[in-house]
């Protein structure tokens, strides 16, 4: 994640965004970029920020992820305009249809772009995927390598002891 402070100005902002989003730029349309910028500026103003400067924080996202984020935001904007309520069914299908890596990316994007709905949706889906999984399977989801140094340290031993003493938690 990178941080840039810049005088409020669209061209300069876009320029910085272009630098930050050096990944998969070709996959992104200009409208998606401006959506993101608008989103950032709106939230900046909504939270009482002034017009002299805008802090732009952007996660290191792929174009594919950004496209998904925009899809989510657009849908929610539309449905809140039309019916005033968001479709849980749409949310479920949206988040249910992505694979683990993308899910994790969407979660982080929601977190870093402060899109609470997306963040919660992805977190709850990740939580749901973790239910009933063995520690080994969870390590795969999170791409956690077992640290060989851990074997010498206190915690995993405690963890192992806990597992031995509390088999019910692992059933």
């Amino acid at each position: 994640m990178e941080k840039q402070q810049t005088p409020f100005g669209f061209h300069k902002l876009i320029f910085i965004l272009l630098i930050l989003l050096s990944v998969s730029m070709s996959a992104l349309g200009r409208d998606i970029l401006s959506d993101i910028i608008e989103l950032k500026i709106e939230s900046h103003i909504a939270s009482g920020g002034n017009f002299d400067s805008v802090t732009v924080e952007l996660p290191n996202l792929t174009g594919k992820t950004l496209a998904k984020v925009i899809e989510y935001c657009k849908k929610h904007e539309e449905s809140s305009e039309k019916t005033g309520e968001l479709s849980e069914k749409w949310d479920g299908e949206f988040i249910g249809g992505v694979e683990v890596g993308m899910l994790m990316d969407l979660f982080l994007a929601g977190y870093e772009l402060k899109i609470k709905g997306l963040n919660d949706l992805a977190a709850s889906r990740i939580g749901g995927m973790m239910l009933g999984k063995t520690p080994e399977e969870i390590r795969v989801i999170f791409d956690i390598k077992e640290d060989p140094l851990c074997k010498k340290s206190k915690s995993p031993k405690e963890g192992e002891r806990f597992a031995r003493d509390n088999p019910w938690a692992f059933q």
Partner: peptide, 28 residues
């Protein structure tokens, strides 16, 4: 995702029931 920031991991873990949390103690 192996080195997610702590508050991010916290947010995911808070979604879990207690039994799963106990199990997650042996992850890393």
């Amino acid at each position: 995702s192996g080195n997610l920031p702590e508050d991010v991991v916290t947010e995911i873990l808070l979604m879990l029931p207690v039994k799963s949390l106990l199990r997650c103690k042996s992850i890393c």
